[in-house]
Design a protein around this nucleic acid. Structure first.
Ligand SMILES: [Mn+2]
Ligand SMILES: [Mn+2]
Ligand SMILES: [Mn+2]
Ligand SMILES: [Mn+2]
Lengths: 220, 220
DNA sequence: GATTATTTTTAGACCAGTCTAATTTATGAT
DNA sequence: ATCATAAATTAGACTGGTCTAAAAATAATC
């Protein structure tokens, strides 16, 4: 039996490892979960005893194989619920995260398989993130890169967001940018690493570095 | 902020009061929640301090007005989820209770209003129980009575079950009895209070007292 | 009315999870 | 190599929730 606190920690360690490639630090986990470092140390100790993480004190934490498996299935549930909320209950993509944060802890594989089937096995969630299947497999995002790294005059389309905070998503809505939107980088400015892009509907749209780093695109 | 343990206690007190008409006893609550009497006393003390229940030590517990309001909204969530699971995810009516027991604790009025709208404002859950609306109002079940009390030769139809345990529901499935099924009581046997009923599909079906007490019907 | 039996509450312990404050370890700078 | 800083751990306390065992109050029986 796993508790939702444990599950939140596993998911945090999972996503920090995914980003950095390395093990997660105590402070990084604490920041991610808005908790204190001492609480993290305690929980990591428990997760270690349950065989879900490896921990070298004063170095870092990483998921074991079973830990990774568990975390992946929680991510699956999170993304399935987000997809359901947007596609069937008419939520916007900037509204669903916190709700999915609760719903992901519902303890029933059967329910989530049925939800998956009900939605016809979606491959991506509303933020472009791949939805793992029952066995934890998900489509790999090869070819996806941040807009900030795209060469001039290459036609790309938006396939995801690295930051899915409501604030960022609302900004994108305001600019008319969403998943699938086709873009070309017209100019790049060395001064502040801003880029000027054009879409079908807007041309000469200037995006600062913070935005272009967090927009994931793919060549067409 | 309310915890799911608190919510389960409130719901238990609510449904015990609904059945008996009086306040709930410590042991009744403990039995209902499969916990110990001492745990109940502790929790009741906390709920009392929060203004959700009235408690006269050694007598009984009853919900305050706000307690009733809270409990009703949890019941609403429970029944909305059960309805969703049966109507949209193809669960059977005997499978959904435990899942709803988890889902009812999701903290979002907005979500449940949307779920309600998605399903076109259902008035009853899969067991025939009325679904409270956002304000806690529900259709009253006037005219409903246990099959055990129905006079001979009266045409009735099944509108609910008093016991919604999987075992009972499976028995009903096995006998071809479901919500809406029309029945007439042909004979009543004093010996063991069993009744013989006929439906469109079966005649001479003998039901024992335990069954007839738990089948809620309404005259047509 | 006194005695049992039952119900309820209290006392005391435990676990999960969190926090603050103090301590230890590792790291970076001089 | 020493010292200062930052990061991580430990110590100790607290809350919510649960349990067992013991005590107190009520209800039932004679
Ligand atoms: Mn969560
Ligand atoms: Mn997402
Ligand atoms: Mn519940
Ligand atoms: Mn029900």
């Amino acid at each position: 039996m796993r508790t939702s606190a444990e599950e939140n920690y596993l998911k945090a360690i999972f996503s920090l490892a995914e980003q950095s490639g390395k093990g997660a630090s105590t402070t990084a986990i604490a920041a991610h979960l808005r908790t204190k470092a001492s609480s993290v140390t305690d929980m990591v100790k428990r997760l270690n005893e349950k065989g879900l993480v490896d921990h070298r004190p004063y170095y870092g934490v990483s998921l074991t194989d079973t830990g990774t498996q568990v975390a992946t299935l929680i991510v699956r549930k999170h993304r399935l619920w987000e997809t359901f909320l947007v596609n069937h209950l008419n939520y916007r993509w900037d509204e669903v995260h916190d709700l999915a944060e609760q719903l992901e802890h519902i303890d029933s594989d059967e329910l989530h398989d049925r939800l998956d089937k009900f939605m016809d096995h979606p491959k991506f969630d509303p933020h472009g993130d791949p939805i793992p299947d029952r066995e934890g497999r998900m489509v790999d995002m090869a070819g996806a890169q941040p807009l900030s790294e795209v060469a001039k005059d290459t036609l790309v389309h938006i396939v995801g967001v690295k930051d899915s905070s409501p604030a960022f998503l609302k900004l994108l809505d305001g600019l008319g940018l969403k998943l699938g939107t086709q873009l070309t980088v017209n100019r790049r400015f060395e001064y502040d690493n801003s880029v000027e892009v054009s879409s079908r509907f807007r041309s000469g749209l200037l995006l600062n570095e913070q935005v272009s780093l967090n927009l994931t695109v793919k060549a067409l």
